[in-house]
Design a protein around this nucleic acid. Structure first.
Lengths: 217, 217
DNA sequence: TCACGCTTGGCCATTTGCTGCCAGCGGCTG
DNA sequence: CAGCCGCTGGCAGCAAATGGCCAAGCGTGA
């Protein structure tokens, strides 16, 4: 079964039964939080979600970085996390929204046509499984929310970036300092500061952090 | 238009016109190279591909790590690269195969039913765009082929992994060695070996490499 | 102008990391 | 059984990293 509907009311009327009560798994991919739900419904949804997660439902939500554009959305994502939903941030936009319920039913949202949002809902095994596989691949490549938020923590200015670059070359401190046109003592001060920012006790550990966080590319 | 067909002959007969001549972009996601093409056709396909790429066609192929299971597939992927196709390896299996042609037509392959492979082909804008977005997200999280092959270079055994783990904790060598129940000299030997494998001159550099390559998770 | 705060650079003591050397041990082979 | 090889561990010498201390210089505000 594959149908196209217009507007959220028609979507709910014709497909609500497919998505109302996921039992095992609920997946959602969207650009940001405004895509599927209005602001005033979110708090209630979180409460409901906590109960469902406690009953064994797996909830996975994949958003684009736009979902972290404002503090309200960010807080809501943290709420989702606190009730046990898994949230990841993809490295790219997710302009078309997808919901997969119990791996059996799926909605894809299209564009708005004459004021009504266009949706395709389907229970086609092939379609659902195909998109599910893609979701899974995107999920694997996405960053868990906490990690993504951590990425924001070490804000590194140009001078810091220069130090990181030098550290990544493998040069001794003396050679690196000369390269940057500063004294060894100053360079080492900068390195010590960088280590603090990366919360590392050793250079290897700092390197791992920098590498994992993509700070060296 | 969305149809389900059985077997590759019916697929070609009913949808061949949609996929035969992509003009701008051809996307393919699959577990490995056996999914869409037989071995004897591959070399010819590469030749054809070179011409098309030269004419401006963008070819992107996303495979799972299974595509690198044997040398023949690996060499073929390198051939694809050499003619200008973009190839990336996802971090997860892609059990269902997808082709998107010029962002206008799409095939999803399902399972084999009574000896015939089941396919869904569609030109539905919503479906195509939805899957396209997922493909894009998966693509962003996937590793370019050359990089992935580089990942394979440092094959790290269990002892090496233990050393990496210790290095990542930030402990001094002496503390780490004691933790692993070996002498400082042996630990340092292991560390030196790890540095060689990571091709690093400094510990920071080694850490970056390990972190970027995902060796610490 | 003077005082203050901050940054830089030189110097130095200490710690940590790097690696060669040698002895000892265990396993394998002829 | 003896010899060889690979690995381990202790020790030593040296390099590199860590960071404290102090003086000098600069910018800012009263």
């Amino acid at each position: 079964m594959t149908i196209t509907v217009h507007g959220e009311q028609e979507l709910a009327a014709r497909t609500g039964h497919l998505f109302a009560k996921p039992e095992r798994e609920f997946l959602c991919a969207a650009t940001d939080l405004n895509t599927w739900s209005h602001r005033r419904h979110r708090a209630a949804a979180v409460g409901d979600m906590a109960d469902r997660v406690a009953q064994g439902l797996t909830i996975r939500k994949l958003y684009s970085p736009a979902a972290l554009a404002d503090e309200e959305q960010r807080l809501h994502l943290l709420d989702l996390r606190s009730v046990g939903a898994q949230v990841r941030i993809a490295g790219t936009g997710l302009p078309h929204e997808t919901i997969i319920s119990d791996r059996a039913a799926m909605i894809l949202a299209g564009r708005t046509v004459r004021g009504e949002r266009e949706f395709t809902a389907t229970t086609s095994k092939i379609l659902v499984e195909g998109v599910y596989a893609m979701f899974e691949a995107a999920w694997q490549g996405a960053v868990p929310l906490e990690e993504y938020l951590t990425v924001d923590l070490p804000h590194i200015d140009a001078a810091g970036k220069a130090v990181l670059r030098m550290l990544t070359t493998g040069l001794t401190d003396e050679a690196a300092a000369r390269r940057l046109g500063m004294s060894l003592r100053t360079y080492r001060r900068r390195v010590a500061e960088m280590m603090r920012m990366l919360e590392a006790e050793s250079r290897f550990q700092a390197g791992v952090r920098a590498g994992e966080l993509g700070l060296t590319s």
